[in-house]
Amino acid sequence: MSKAAALPDQEELMPNGHPAFRPFLRRLLQRSVLNEEEQQAILSLNGREVEIEPHRDIVRPGELTDFSCLVVSGMAARFGQLRDGQRQITAIHVPGDMCDLYSLMLPKVEWALQALSARLTIVKVAHRDLLELVRTYPAIGEAFWRDTTADGSIVAQWVVSVGRRDARMRTAHLFCEIGVRMERAGLGRRTDFDLPAIQTQLADALGMTPVHMNRVIRSLRQDGLLILKGREVQIPDWDALAATGQFDGGYLEMDMAPLARL
């Protein structure tokens, strides 16, 4: 279980032009067409940089927020929590993700955020600044809409994993998904990337006990489908792992040609 959140460990107000907005813009441009002025407007956003210790909560369930979180380094997880403290991780966010962009419209957070097992750096972007941006540039609003739709598509696949894929299949599927997303974010290759999550957190994401998670990981390693060296993940045979997970990356909507502007 995550430690009680004492936000933040360190905060620094950054000037306009924080470099973290460049990977976020690159993510948006995978699905949307934005002109030079619109791109510059995104790159000129202001934000407050925050460093968070591993396993700490960023936003708690039910909290009313006035900002969205852009991941700079490390990884964040979205989760739901029961009254007894048990958690289900419903999404993992990599650098370049605005992991709770939806909170711009739904500021009372029911799906909270936590840092995974490495120190996390985010930029907190004020909702008022994002709202001003989309009101000034409707095409940016459309790009944000597509971005949150893609996140929803990922969540739908996670529901299928927990509900219908067996433990081995859903684990292989998750490693394939993270690999593709890290590759497209320029943070490694789909066959070689860092995953700063402990097995307990992976179990929370895949609906398993930590013991069961450990057994599945060991099985995949013994079959030569995964190599884990600390946080480093290596996939010796991508096609074999993708076949094991029945992974088809189309739901990530990263290979679609950006929609032409009307």
Rank of each mutant, 00 (worst) to 15 (best):
M1A: 07
S2W: 13
S2H: 13
S2R: 06
A4C: 07
A4P: 11
A5Q: 01
E12N: 06
L13Y: 08
M14C: 11
M14E: 02
M14L: 13
P15C: 00
N16C: 09
L28A: 07
L29E: 02
L29V: 07
L29M: 09
Q30S: 10
Q30L: 13
R31I: 08
V33C: 13
V33R: 09
E36C: 07
E38W: 14
E38G: 14
E38N: 08
Q40V: 09
A41C: 11
A41H: 10
L43V: 03
L43S: 05
L45Y: 14
E49I: 01
V50W: 00
V50A: 04
P54Y: 04
H55V: 05
D57K: 07
I58D: 00
R60W: 05
T65P: 01
D66L: 05
S68L: 02
C69R: 00
V71T: 08
A76E: 01
A77T: 04
R78H: 06
F79W: 03
G80T: 05
R83T: 06
D84S: 13
G85R: 05
Q88G: 11
Q88M: 09
I89F: 13
T90P: 08
G96E: 02
M98E: 01
D100W: 04
Y102T: 03
M105G: 13
P107I: 01
V109M: 05
E110T: 08
S117A: 15
R119M: 04
L120E: 01
V123L: 12
K124R: 12
V125D: 01
L130F: 13
L130Q: 03
E132D: 06
E132L: 11
L133D: 02
T136G: 14
T136V: 07
Y137A: 04
P138M: 01
P138Q: 00
P138F: 11
R146Y: 15
T148P: 11
T149P: 05
T149H: 13
D151V: 07
G152I: 02
I154Y: 11
I154R: 10
V155I: 11
W158E: 00
W158H: 10
V160C: 04
S161D: 09
V162K: 06
V162Y: 12
G163D: 02
H173I: 01
F175H: 04
I178L: 14
V180I: 12
E183M: 15
L187N: 03
G188W: 08
G188D: 00
R189T: 09
R190A: 11
D192Q: 03
D194C: 09
D194M: 09
I198Y: 12
L202Q: 03
A203P: 14
D204P: 02
D204M: 09
A205R: 07
A205C: 09
G207L: 05
T209G: 14
H212A: 13
R215Y: 15
Q222K: 14
D223S: 12
G224F: 11
L225K: 08
L225I: 06
L226N: 03
I227T: 09
K229V: 11
G230P: 15
R231K: 13
R231W: 15
V233K: 01
Q234F: 14
Q234S: 08
L241D: 02
G250Y: 08
Y251Q: 00
M256A: 14
P258M: 01
P258R: 00
L259Y: 10
L259A: 14
